[in-house]
Amino acid sequence: MKKRFGLAIIVGIVATTSGCASLGVQPWERDLLAKDEMALDADSVDSGLDDHIYFSKEATSGGKAFSGGGCGCN
């Protein structure tokens, strides 16, 4: 499992970074990306509340943001 996980990280990083140079937009093409709802954490208050619920009800936390610390609920 650990090996598979390491491989997945490497493949993911290599695939993403090697593709980066040819990807992207010019500054004047950011009309859609600049919209509030396209921000990666558009619903940050919702996410914060959800993360707290799932943190206390499930064995895994974090991923999008730091998982550390928090409450005595788990």
Partner: peptide
């Protein structure tokens, strides 16, 4: 790593 893919798409790893 955050990458803008095109005018409509953005990805994060």
């Amino acid at each position: 790593l955050t990458q803008t893919i095109n005018r409509r798409m953005i990805m994060q790893l």
